[in-house]
Amino acid sequence: MRTHWRLSVAILIAVGLTMGLGNVGEAAKFPEKPITLVVHASAGGGSDIFARTLAAAFEKEKLVPQPIVVENKPGGSGAIAFAYVGGKKKDPYYLLTAVTSFLTTPILRKSQVTYKDFTPIANFAFDEYVVIVRAESKYKSMKDIVSDAKANPKRITVGGTQLGSSDSICAYLIEKAAGVQLNYIVFNSGGEVNAALMGGHIDIAVANPGEALELAKANKVRTLGVFSEKRLAGAPDVPTLKEQGLNAVYVQNRGLVAPAEIPEEARKVLEEALLKYTKTDVFKKYVKENMLSEAWMDGSTFGKWLDGEHARYQEVLKAMGLLK
């Protein structure tokens, strides 16, 4: 009898493990296959570099037992990638890069897929923005720009990449804070904007500090101000716009999201691995070299942050006249 009793307990436990507690067993194994990290932009851009640096660090440090495969799905300011990953509901094997366009594109395009169709996983850093002019420019500070813009409305040309993009929002924030009007010229890429600035074809540009300070060191451009709350650690002599009396503060986030309704266990595994990633030398080096600001947010904090930003973008884009 005793042995029978033992046997039935063993069977019960075994059955219990395979049935009721099966989910736990499964989740503990996540990931069982490679994870696809979808980049919403083309190879070589900021998000692509972010994704590939992350994938390489995961491989090197073995942060999860499976590799992360980067896949570029460029097009439609992210719309194609959002629709693609958004359609993978419940599948934790897909991740998506989420920057400004993750919020702005659905607002501008009134698309079916919005940020609510994703599970926020984590945010890593903020991209900063600076105002630059060419070395020969007559503008020495933001004050010069503002007073000139007041005297000559819509005459100062500012180069950017797209209406509704981060740089256009920055330009709008200057206009709003100073009560002036600038002339926004759209280029194909940030590289072309910088070329046009150095060639003297446009007056000012909004750029990321990484590229801008490299040009500044070579005396090709001057950096007049940064859109952050505090001065940047990597560029302590560049004043903020706020210090110069312009209430214009802006950052772009760098985060990752997954499809909606993924298993909670999988979300946790990803979140923990990504937190470990932010402690690696690779990530520290990435942040320093690209002059980003570290800004870790776990899934729920990131989700709340996205809610707030979504409302803010809706308001700004409407004020810019881009929503009908």
Binding site: S42, G44, G191, E192, A195, K220
Partner: peptide, 10 residues
């Protein structure tokens, strides 16, 4: 200049 002239140089 650090400016890419084409998709590949980007």
């Amino acid at each position: 200049l650090g400016i890419p002239g084409s998709g590949t140089t980007a």
